[in-house]
């Protein structure tokens, strides 16, 4: 694909452009952050712990997964492995965005900028890079409000959510699974995704029944990826994001 990048505007204009770009994502992420904080409080995390996790990990999917398998004391190794598995997709996103920041960004700007490379940030940056040169000012204007929004919303949710009480009464505990189902469907790419999901569900259910604990996450993930690898061999098409 050939593009004709326009010359970047002044840093102030670029920063403002970035802020405008991120507004819809902020509106969408705000209630999700509040829900995350409230559910984390249900799991026994303090508001400070919620703030540390949101600021340090800054990955909605991985954070929700962590809560789902959270217990006391925290199974830190399982939590770390599952965060790695959930975030493996970032390897592809990072690789595809890397050439687009190779010249305009200083090394520290790349290192800092990729610390906050979520699905949303990646998608918007790729969209921008298709027609314009990516500048640090634009990127900062986009990610700074988005980052603060997530950390503040999650912490606020933890502070207020602690007084919500029993969530199962109103089906609120099902917010988690429902959120994940919405996420799963957003990854849908045709029947092959169905095969992956079926393999994952079967392996996870079997492992959950047989072993309990949190092994079902790893079993399901491995089964799903294995099936994806095997089915990809037969026709070898779409799916490569890194190119």
């Amino acid at each position: 694909m050939t593009v004709s990048p326009k010359f970047p505007a002044s840093p102030a204009d670029e920063f403002r452009d970035g802020m405008i770009t991120i507004v819809p994502m902020i509106i969408a992420a705000l209630p999700i952050g509040l829900i995350f904080g409230a559910l984390a409080a249900q799991k026994g995390l303090s508001p400070l712990e919620v703030m540390l996790m949101s600021a340090g990990v800054f990955a909605g999917g991985a954070q929700f997964v962590a809560l789902e398998i959270w217990s006391h004391p925290a199974p830190w190794l399982t939590l770390t492995v599952s965060a790695l598995l959930v975030n493996l997709r970032h390897v592809l996103m990072s690789a595809s965005l890397a050439p687009k920041v190779a010249r305009g960004f200083r090394p520290w700007q790349r290192a800092l900028g990729f610390f906050v490379l979520t699905d949303e940030v990646w998608a918007l940056a790729e969209q921008r890079a298709a027609t314009r040169v990516l500048t640090p000012a634009w990127y900062a204007g986009m990610v700074i409000p988005f980052y603060l929004n997530w950390v503040i919303a999650a912490t606020a949710g933890a502070i207020t959510g602690a007084v919500l009480g029993d969530t199962t009464r109103f089906g609120l505990d099902f917010a988690f699974p429902a959120l994940f189902i919405a996420l799963i469907m957003s990854f849908w790419k045709g029947p092959r995704t169905g095969t992956v999901l079926a393999a994952s569900a079967l392996a996870a259910t079997g492992t959950y029944m047989a072993l309990g604990g949190a092994w079902y996450v790893i079993a399901g993930a491995l089964a799903g990826v294995l099936v994806a690898y095997v089915t990809a061999a037969e026709t070898d098409e779409s799916g490569a994001q890194g190119q």
Partner: peptide
Amino acid sequence: DAVPAAVLMAVI
């Protein structure tokens, strides 16, 4: 590419 869907499915 299938990792997120597989992981999330297993999680729920």
